[in-house]
């Protein structure tokens, strides 16, 4: 081993300690939710024994189940919608270098730097302004609008890494511009698209703020439904719902990180998230 690597490998004790505490702090509340969702009594401070009664409560609460299904539906439709629109946007922006193109590009990134409450308030005003009744549809429209930017950023990142010669090669081998897009560019983007779609699914499924402002009375997306029951007091049933939500979104996120890696071997959305 060289002197160089030995030096770097001496671990800074303080930083390591902070990191360990950080991870404990990061997972403590999550672990607590999961643990107490299996508590046999209603207490949130003492664990009295294993039970699945809160899950039974959840499953038999038609309202909660409807909300869960609604949330999954919203997330799926939003993921597809944002994927289609965001990819179109990314493809268009990567090729058009005019001033209008750049302006459009900047505008589409605005939702990323706008506090969510502003987007939510604005969407609420827009929908009521044009007379759309607030419902799961309005939630989905707002979520798509908000998620397009994520897809665009990820796809543009992948496109930037792709040589323009690849598309030229397709045209050289007999493709019209549209065929080049369909037969070469899009298939090359598949790993990035999968990652982006799953990421949007996870984000939308968990999103509370936008849904809160744009949903109607019933059925409500799951996070909104949970929010209203939290305000009426803490209940172990929420722990069960929360656990289901955590597991589901963690699963989707893990997929979002892994699938592109398995597929393309080269890039993953993790790289895109970290910018590495």
């Amino acid at each position: 081993m060289s002197a160089r690597s030995r030096r770097v490998e001496r671990r800074p004790a303080v930083a390591v300690a902070v990191t360990v505490v950080f991870f404990a702090w990061l997972y403590l509340p999550i672990a607590a939710v999961v643990l107490f969702s299996f508590n046999s009594v209603k207490s949130l401070s003492t664990f009295r024994g294993f039970s699945t009664r809160w899950y039974a409560d959840f499953v038999h609460d038609a309202d909660l189940v409807t909300s869960l299904v609604a949330s999954i539906g919203i997330a799926a439709v939003s993921a597809v919608g944002a994927l289609v629109l965001g990819t179109m946007l990314a493809l268009g922006l990567s090729r058009i270098r005019s001033r209008t193109g750049r302006a459009v590009g900047a505008v589409t990134l605005l939702p990323l730097v706008t506090p969510e409450i502003v987007t939510g308030v604005a969407a609420l005003l827009l929908f009521t302004g044009v007379g759309l009744k607030l419902s799961l549809v309005t939630v989905t429209l707002a979520e798509i609008t908000f998620s397009i930017a994520y897809v665009t950023v990820i796809v543009r990142g992948r496109l930037a890494a792709m040589s323009t010669e690849v598309e030229e090669a397709a045209r050289d081998l007999g493709c019209t511009p549209w065929q080049a897009l369909r037969l070469v560019t899009l298939p090359t983007l598949v790993p990035a698209l999968l990652g982006a779609g799953l990421l949007v699914f996870a984000l939308v499924f968990d999103d509370f703020v936008l849904a809160f402002f744009t949903t109607g009375v019933s059925p409500q997306p799951l996070p909104v439904r949970i929010y209203s029951s939290i305000r009426f007091g803490v209940s172990p049933a929420i722990n069960a719902v929360g656990t289901v939500m955590l597991v589901l979104s963690a699963l989707v996120m893990v997929l979002a990180l892994i699938v592109p890696r398995l597929w393309g071997r080269k890039s993953s959305s993790l790289d895109l998230i970290t910018g590495a």
Binding site: E168, A169, Q179, P187, T188
Partner: peptide, 21 residues
């Protein structure tokens, strides 16, 4: 004539292979 209807083919500097095939 657009490139896809020209009877010429190109070997690119970056090779420009299709990674998905």
């Amino acid at each position: 004539t657009p490139p896809h209807r020209r009877d010429v083919n190109t070997v690119f500097q970056s090779y420009a292979l299709f990674e998905h095939l």
